[in-house]
């Protein structure tokens, strides 16, 4: 367990780790910003507790999987004190027989008024045999809060693919453009430009 003291900042990008296991307790005014990028199998478990006022937590996770690869990402975010903010954006892109699983446990205790908490899970299935399981669990016991969550799983937009083909773009390249567009939101939120660029190059390679 890691304790972030008043005003501490924990910012980290995890790329292709077989598993990220983090347990962080945030004291007042501390900030967490993590990115987890998986291009192969992994198990991630992120536990965050906002124990002091005015904390910020940002969790971004992206998994892009092929073959028999599997990723499970669990997030457990607890607002034990009010006035904090958390934002989670979790995306999976699954091709072939890949499996994805997201468990998103978000808790706001009765006294944690004026909390702002958002959780978004978006998944893209590129094959008939890929599979995604999503289990959002929201426990919100305070009434004066701003909390949103959404989960959706879909396929590539056929009409967009045809539109691009009609302009001379091969179907494969069109797929690549759409997949990259889907992943961009997570990648572009990485603060370090060099890391971002390197990642975009890696992903282009995977798609081609």
């Amino acid at each position: 367990m890691k304790v972030l003291h008043k005003g501490d900042i924990f910012e980290q990008v995890f790329i292709n780790e077989p598993g990220v296991d983090l347990h962080i307790v945030q004291e007042a005014g501390s900030r967490v910003k993590i990115h987890i990028i998986n291009l192969s199998s992994a198990n991630n478990n992120i536990v965050i507790e906002q124990a002091g006022k005015g904390c910020e937590t940002e969790i971004y996770a992206l998994a892009y999987l092929h073959g028999e690869e599997q990723v499970t990402t669990e997030t457990h975010v607890k607002h034990a004190v009010g006035g904090g903010r958390s934002n989670q954006l979790i995306k999976f892109v699954l091709d072939d027989n890949a499996r994805g699983r997201f468990v998103g446990d978000l808790k706001i205790v009765p006294d944690a008024q004026q909390t702002e908490a958002h959780q978004t899970n978006r998944n893209l299935l590129l094959s008939e045999t890929a599979e995604m399981r999503t289990q959002p669990q929201l426990e919100i016991y305070a009434d004066d809060v701003q909390a949103t969550h959404g989960a959706s799983t879909g396929q590539l937009d056929e009409s967009a693919l045809f539109y691009m083909q009609q302009r001379g773009i091969s179907k494969q390249k069109a797929r690549q453009l759409l997949v990259n567009a889907f992943m961009k939101e997570v990648i572009e939120s990485i603060p370090d430009t060099a890391v971002r660029e390197q990642l975009l190059n890696t992903i282009d390679g995977v798609v081609e």
Binding site: D157, S159, A160, Y163, L177, L178, N180, F182
Partner: peptide, 11 residues
Amino acid sequence: VEIPGVSMTNF
């Protein structure tokens, strides 16, 4: 068709 995330230039 609208294609979010794909810029006109890139397309």
